[in-house]
Design a protein around this nucleic acid. Structure first.
Length: 318
DNA sequence: AAGTCTCCCGATCTTACTTCA
DNA sequence: ATTGAAGTAAGATCGGGAGAC
């Protein structure tokens, strides 16, 4: 079961994060490689390395993931040293009488200590019900209460999750269990976190792609406008007889999109066959006035200076 | 082939928190 | 300084599709 899931996960991993017109999908080819190594690495990462040791890299990597306008509230609070969740330091219901989250939600943020007790964060944010069965996950309101109380993860937990996500954006059951155990969360929580993380990463990527396409459209519109203008100028030239007499028969330059060679097809009666020339040669062949530039075919996509920046980090290592 | 299980995804709900007037 | 509305981020849930058994 796990084997098929891993395969499935890897396929989705390579598909899900490679929206973006296939422009940067190369790295994902490595996703299917060395699964055993990945698991070994995860074990090392999750079990042998204490969470605190992975913190120094956090802010850099997180900013790399979301470099723009995405200083989340948690991060901002983190930077300010304010513990946003420090109120609910303990959850008193190991037996599940009341949700630990209800404690969190019943205490407004204004009751939290301003300086925050960072030492208690992990305990605060962790489920004291972490030993309860995973069945309490989706729709798992075994106590019949339909409350959807939410628990903010501590920054340590978030950091570990982020670090893990950067390496594996999907987890197999073993990884999930190990991570949940390390973070003192329920496996379901880890699973949900990864699902949400994937979804939001994809959303961000979609936004980036949308912006990119918008700029492409703008560039093409501008290029079209320029070409239209040039056509008008050429038509005006054609209508001017004395100038027209000294011109070679008008040519139509078309660019082969694949080889980027220019087919020069004369519209005059002398030649009806198109010949392929390289673009620079055709440019120099233009015998029109110096002020008129024959539009050398451009690749508006290639000419664009937009830097596409993949926003999600998670690329599995080979 | 049909049923079940598990996983993932997309949409959505809900809550915690921030910002701003 | 305080407060409440609006906005945002993120955890959680729901329903459905897909693959494995």
């Amino acid at each position: 079961m796990a084997t098929t899931n891993e395969k499935d996960n890897n396929e989705k991993m390579s598909l899900g994060l490679s929206l973006s017109l296939g422009l940067y999908t190369d790295n994902n080819d490595n996703n299917n490689k060395n699964k055993n190594e990945q698991q070994q690495a995860l074990k090392l990462n999750l079990i042998q390395k204490p969470p605190s040791q992975s913190f120094p890299n956090h802010r850099l990597s997180f900013n790399n993931l979301f470099p723009f306008h995405d200083l989340s509230s948690e991060t901002r609070s983190f930077l300010r040293g304010i513990d946003v969740n420090s109120a609910a330091t303990t959850c008193e219901d190991d037996n599940g009488v009341s949700s630990p989250n209800s404690t969190v939600s019943s205490i407004s943020g204004k009751q939290r200590e301003p300086n925050g007790n960072d030492e208690n964060e992990a305990e605060r944010a962790s489920y004291s019900r972490s030993d309860e069965e995973e069945g309490g996950g989706i729709g798992g309101d075994a106590d019949g209460e339909s409350s959807r109380k939410k628990l903010r993860l501590s920054k340590e937990q978030a950091v570990v999750l982020e670090e893990t996500f950067k390496e594996y954006n999907t987890l197999n059951p073993k990884q999930k269990q190990a991570l949940a155990k390390q973070l003192n969360l329920r496996p379901r929580q880890v699973e949900v976190w990864f699902q949400n993380r994937r979804a939001r990463t994809k959303l961000k990527q979609t936004e980036v792609d949308c912006e990119y396409l918008k700029r492409c459209c703008e560039n093409l519109t501008e290029e079209n406008r320029r070409l239209q203008k040039e056509v008008q100028e050429l038509r005006a030239l054609k209508l001017s007889p004395q100038l027209y007499m000294h011109m070679n028969p008008p040519t139509t330059l078309t660019m082969c999109p694949s080889c980027e060679r220019v087919a020069v097809s004369s519209t005059g009666s002398s030649s009806s066959s198109a010949t392929m020339q390289s673009a620079p040669a055709s440019a120099s062949q233009n015998q029109m006035g110096p002020n008129i530039q024959r539009p050398i075919p451009v690749n508006p996509w290639g000419a664009m200076s937009i830097q596409r920046r993949p926003i999600e980090g998670p690329t599995t290592r080979p």
